[in-house]
Each structure stands twice: as C-alpha cells, then as structure tokens.
Simulated assay, not measured.
Amino acid sequence: MKKFINSVDSVLAESLDGFAAAHADLVALGAERKFVRRCELNPRKVALVSGGGSGHEPLHAGFVGYGMLDAACPGQVFTSPTPDQIVEAAQAVAGDAGVLFIVKNYAGDRMNFEMAAEIAEGRIATVVTDDDVAVENSTHSSGRRGVAGTLIVEKIVGAAAEKGLNLEGCVALGERVNTRTRSMGVALTSCTVPAAGTPTFSLGEDEMEMGVGIHGEPGRRRVKLERADAIADEIAAAIVQDLDARAGAEALLFVNGFGGTPTIELYLMYNAARRMLEKRGLRIARSLVGSFVTSLDMAGCSLTVSLLDSEATALWDHPVRTAALKW
C-alpha cells in the first residue's frame, strides 16, 4: 500500500483539518471534528444534514455551503457516523424551520440517523436515498444502495431550502427526486482501505465488476473488460428500464469517478453514455462529470440519470457555493 499518510489512525483527523483550513471561507469544524458546518448559517431556512463513512470525498463535507448542506458528519473510513455526531451537527445548524436528514440506504447510516432523530430536540425529518439499480440487497443495505444520486437530492433540495421551502415540502421534493434518479457503477480495480492495507477485493488484469458498490461490495457479476461503449450501453439499458421514462423526457446525466479514474476517461464515458441514452429516447438537458462520490482509490465510474421537470431543472441551476460544487 502506498498512500500519503502519517498514521493510519490519524488519516481522517488530519484530512479534516486540511479541508477546513483550505476552505475556511466556507466551512468550520465542530468540536472534536464531529461534523463540518457552514460558516454562515441562515436560521430561517430548513437545515440540511447528511453524512456517512469517509473515503467517498468530496461527499459529504465537500457539499457543505450555500445551496446544499448545512452540515455533514464524517465517520471513519467506510464506517457510519455515530448518533452523537449527528445530534451535535443538527443542534449546531438547526433554526426555526427544522432539520432534514439526507441518508444513504446503508444499515449503519440509517440506524444511527434514526437514533439521532429520536434523541435530538426540535423538528427533524428524513429522506433516504436508494438510487442504485445494480442489486436489490447488499452486504451493507436492505434494499437498494444509496450512491451518487445522493448528490442530486442534496443539490435540488438544498436549493429549495434556500428559497424558503418548508420541512414537509423539502421531504416531498427529496423523495420525488430520489424516485426519479437511478445509478449503476463499474469497477476496474479495487480500493484499499488504509486500516486494511490490502485491496478489498481482487480483479484479474482483464476483468471488471459490473454493478459494484461504493464500498467495494459485489455487483451484478464479474466479467471480462469490454469497450467503453459496451459498458455504457449495458448501464444505460439497466437505468432506462428501471426508470420507465417516456420518450423525449429530459434528464440530467452525471458521470462520476470512483477516485482512481482520470478525467479523460470520464469524459469519454460521458460521450458514450449520452449517445446510449439518447438512442433510448432520453434528452440530456443537464450534465455533471467528475469524481464527486468516490471509493478511495478505486478505478471505475458510475452513471446516474435523474429525470427533470421545470422545477427540478430550475433548482439544479440555482447558485451553489461549496468546496466541491460552485456555480
């Protein structure tokens, strides 16, 4: 294992210190590094809080700021944040309008956010994301996994909260966006968790894992490496079939890198995916390409498609200012 670290035990703490210092105009660390919050809070809006295991950066701390999250709770690598982290984050950012938890569908995340909701004071609601079409159940979840589509929910609901939508409205919007969003990933290599020191799984030089999870969970099947067009075509077919979208529907296409894939390949995959989706009747109206929901150093990518209407498009276009997304 070759990584830029001083000690396996201090990786997260030192990374959080660096993140907060680099983006001191946007974020501040909570006590004992339990959460990252916005520097400037608006007590009149619904506060959005998310979190999960580290190793997926910039998810979620990179999306703390105007137009998205008010706070994020980083757990240890691939480990859920604890209920006390979540409670302290909620209390630090809560205003008069209540708090919305946005939670990926993993057993530990759901359990700890549910416990936090029971403990914390004030009005709290939850939206669960489960956009992965690869498998119905995995080693970490019951039902579909919450993956890169979580970013889209956070962005659209975050914009609505900035515009004054109430807590009930934010929940309904988040659930609607989640039901109109689907993702699927493919891995070319494993990732290596620092504490383990060895790859999570092994792939042959000519193999890929189709439908891999963001923690390295197994996908649909392990197959021989194929051309980019063939990979994009299989993923696009699975997503479109699951979405059951009408011909001519507008959509957002998000091509997400897993941490070890160069940008040149991500744009190549975007080109392939766009063609395959348009062939199936979708019209790509908005796009995002980059490594935003990663799996440490895994080589691979995911495709996410989110169906748009005029409201969702306007909220996607709404200004955002975070460490990872700005427009």
Rank of each mutant, 00 (worst) to 15 (best):
A13W: 11
V27R: 02
V27N: 09
L41N: 04
R44S: 12
S54T: 00
G55V: 04
L59V: 14
M68I: 06
T79Q: 09
S80P: 05
V93Y: 00
F101A: 02
K104F: 01
Y106G: 03
A116L: 01
E118G: 06
G122R: 06
R123T: 05
R123L: 12
D130M: 09
D132E: 11
S142E: 14
G143S: 11
A148Q: 14
G149S: 06
T150K: 02
L151E: 09
I152D: 02
G158H: 09
L167G: 15
G169L: 09
G169I: 08
V171D: 12
L173N: 04
G174N: 12
V177C: 11
R182V: 08
S183G: 03
G185V: 06
A187V: 03
T189N: 10
A195R: 10
A195H: 13
A196G: 06
T198F: 14
E209I: 04
V212W: 07
G213E: 12
E217R: 03
K224D: 09
I231V: 14
E234L: 12
V240P: 00
D242S: 03
D242E: 02
G248W: 07
P262A: 04
Y270K: 13
A273H: 08
R286D: 09
S291F: 04
V293G: 06
L303D: 07
L303W: 02
T304F: 01
S306T: 15
T313Y: 08
P319W: 08
R321E: 14
K326N: 13
